[in-house]
Design a protein around this nucleic acid. Structure first.
Lengths: 112, 112
DNA sequence: GAGGATACTATCTAATAAGATACTAACAAT
DNA sequence: ATTGTTAGTATCTTATTAGATAGTATCCTC
């Protein structure tokens, strides 16, 4: 993304944060509850641990999610939303509404 | 994006549509008014015509924007939102709010 | 002592996307 | 005849992402 607009324009800035291919569903999952790494993997079976780790790290770096490590064996790591992440909820809600509209739209197009 | 979730999950589906690096600001510009190719270029000076064309074509293919060609010389082509594109406005509004919050957040972080 | 559970990491390859550069068509004005 | 205008296209290179594969540490249970 352009340096000149990142940190200035809210659209360019947000787009940069949402570049990851899975960020929206991850954010959606976390908006429902705190969740463990493994649970996320099971929820998104087509996503490998390599990619999941990368996306989570990126969201953590951007301050949207919090990673909590429990010092036990076998390991336990929980992911939850930060305040900034929680404030993202209205975006997710609107995205869900629009996304479902879009899905209807393409279904109708195919039927004709 | 995964075929298994595209067209089913609203988040995965929307993320796919928003992959373009400039789609959000383009949608924002078009949500304010119908606009010509050249005007968009001037509004986004760091974006080349190659990339702008690609993004516009993609949004058109997905049914979010409408391309109107006026048969005159020099050429005139206008871009505007379809109904589906207009329905995207609430998402943009929430994104703008959150994006500005995020910008404040990183500014404060840097100051500390 | 073998296998399972968890949450990864390292390395590499493949796929996708962005951008640089140069060019085009057609007419109007100078 | 040359220049300007608009909305692109074609080609190529570079950058960014995703994903495949294999492996790690530590303890518990069988």
């Amino acid at each position: 993304m352009e340096k000149d607009l990142f940190g200035i324009c809210p659209f360019v800035t947000t787009q940069k944060i949402l570049t990851g291919k899975w960020t929206l569903i991850i954010m959606h999952c976390l908006s429902e509850r705190t969740i463990r790494f493994n649970e996320l993997q099971r929820a998104l079976p087509t996503l490998t641990s390599t990619t999941l780790t990368k996306q989570l790290r990126m969201l953590e770096e951007h301050g949207l999610i919090i990673r909590t490590v429990y010092n036990q064996i076998p390991p336990k790591v929980e992911y939850s939303l930060s305040d900034l992440g929680k404030n993202f909820k209205p975006v997710l809600d609107e995205l869900e509404i629009w996304g479902n509209q879009y899905i209807d739209f393409i279904r109708n197009k195919k039927q004709v």
